[in-house]
Design a protein around this nucleic acid. Structure first.
Length: 432
DNA sequence: ATGAGCCAG
DNA sequence: GATTCTGGCTCAT
């Protein structure tokens, strides 16, 4: 048997992930943050969700509450920033656009991660990985790592190795790592490092004597399916090199939309919650209209703090809408059905609405007698437009439009400018 | 069909 | 005093 002169290389999958994305995005426009410990905080400046390597080295953990870090921030030289989603979304779009040039087959997996279908000889693939890494640094300004492997699960694992093992220089390809080295790495990493395995599954696996990634790789996929689930079996097969998790098309249809937030200060009145419900209903309306969707069901809820066992209250209502709709008036009215259930004086720290049973609005027109006048004029979009131009609180239906009500806005004391999306927050460059 | 459970980022 | 938020999937009922 003679080998063909040109071997047809198998499809491989590259996984690209921005290192500590939010912190890196902040550094793009604030180079003074380079080399310093930086953390980005969750909504309401609650806890650390992203840490630069320098911050990790200080022992700051994911989810560490800011109030515990703050006393030592100065001594550490720690910079804490409120999350600036507008900036991150824009940086993300730039990264994804750039990656799209390297493969027609790009799956944007999250705000800072993507899978790409790639083909080529082993050394070509490594060159490609390094090129993508260099391009993200050069053209967008963020550091990324790249993992390349026959399956998504292995590509994610390689990416982790690329991140944690300086010898890889940020790019790691499964097949290019000698088997003995791979097994040594897998033997000393816990199964919890694997995509799809978290604390619960780790406990159950450990109970069966499966501790390391190598243990899991050598497990019998069928036995795993019987003891766990089809998902876990796929993970094992993927570790063994059999692709089971396909590249996905862009998600278009969603089953539900949720608008929910914790408040910076608790809301204790029905009037306050009424206002919150109005705002969320209008946000939902705008989002539905944007995607040409209508909802049939709206659920509204509020909740007291889980950390206060003395005052537990979790009111919620589920409203079947009279017809599938994206109408802000109807949604607001439905959301207000929650109000009779709220106790005056109780401290609600969180509330939200969820619209479910979504369907495309385009295809079938409702009977004329059911047609809704608001919908025709796309009030949802209009409201959103005005709010964008003149600021939230400048327009709104009912109680959403009142300024100076109770303060339930997000606490973001350390917000960086939206450098790339607002003209008045552009970075200034001074030439010497 | 729906809720509980688990997971990702 | 303070501990994210949103969305997806599978399995059991």
């Amino acid at each position: 048997m003679s080998r063909p002169a040109v071997m047809r290389r198998m499809q491989e999958i590259a996984h690209v992930d921005v290192n500590c994305f939010y912190a890196s995005a902040e550094r793009v426009f604030n180079p003074a943050l380079e080399g310093r410990p930086v953390i980005v905080l969750s909504n309401n400046d609650g806890c650390a969700v992203t840490r630069s390597p320098e911050a990790k080295r200080l022992g700051i953990g994911l989810g560490d509450p800011w109030f515990k870090l703050r006393p030592r921030a100065k001594e550490w030289g720690l910079v804490a920033l409120s999350s600036n989603y507008e900036l991150y979304g824009d940086i993300s779009a730039r990264v994804m656009e750039l990656l799209g040039r390297y493969s027609a087959w790009l799956e944007v997996y999250s705000i800072d991660e993507a899978f790409l279908g790639v083909k080529g000889e082993p050394d070509e693939l490594l060159v490609l990985g390094r090129a993508m890494k260099a391009a993200c640094r050069r053209h967008v300004g963020v550091p990324v790592c790249v993992g390349i492997a026959p399956t998504k699960t292995l590509a994610k694992l390689c990416n982790k190795w690329a991140k944690n093992n300086p010898a890889f220089n940020g790019v790691c390809r499964w097949e290019s790592v000698p088997v003995e080295q791979r097994e040594a790495l897998m033997a000393r990493l816990s199964v919890i490092e694997i995509w799809g395995v978290a604390t619960r599954l780790t406990k159950r696996l450990n109970a069966m004597g499966i501790f390391s990634i190598l243990d899991l790789t050598r497990a019998n996929p069928v036995a795993i399916r019987d003891k766990f689930s089809i998902v876990m079996m796929r993970t094992v097969l993927e570790l063994q090199g059999t692709p089971c998790i396909p590249m996905e098309e862009e998600r278009i249809g969603r089953d539900q939309l949720i608008f929910s937030r914790s408040f910076s200060t608790p809301i204790t009145t029905a009037a306050g919650l009424r206002q919150v419900m109005s705002v969320y209903a209008q946000m939902a309306s705008a989002r539905l209209a944007k995607h040409d969707l209508q909802a049939k069901v709206l659920t509204a809820f509020a909740a007291t703090s889980h950390f206060n066992p003395n005052e537990k209250s979790f009111p919620s209502v589920c409203v079947a809408l009279p017809m599938p709709t994206a109408d802000p008036v109807l949604l607001t009215k439905a959301a207000h059905a929650l109000l009779p259930q709220v106790h005056e004086g109780t401290k609600y720290v969180r509330a939200g609405i969820m619209v479910t049973d979504l369907r495309p609005s385009g295809n079938q027109k409702p009977l004329e007698i059911f047609e809704n006048p608001h919908e025709e004029r796309s009030i949802g979009i209009l409201l959103e437009d005005v709010a964008k131009r003149y600021g939230r609180g400048s327009i709104g239906l009912g109680h959403a439009g009142i300024k100076g009500g109770p303060d339930w806005s997000m606490k973001r004391d350390m917000l960086s400018p939206r450098y790339t999306t607002h003209w008045d927050e552009l970075p200034l460059v001074k030439a010497a």
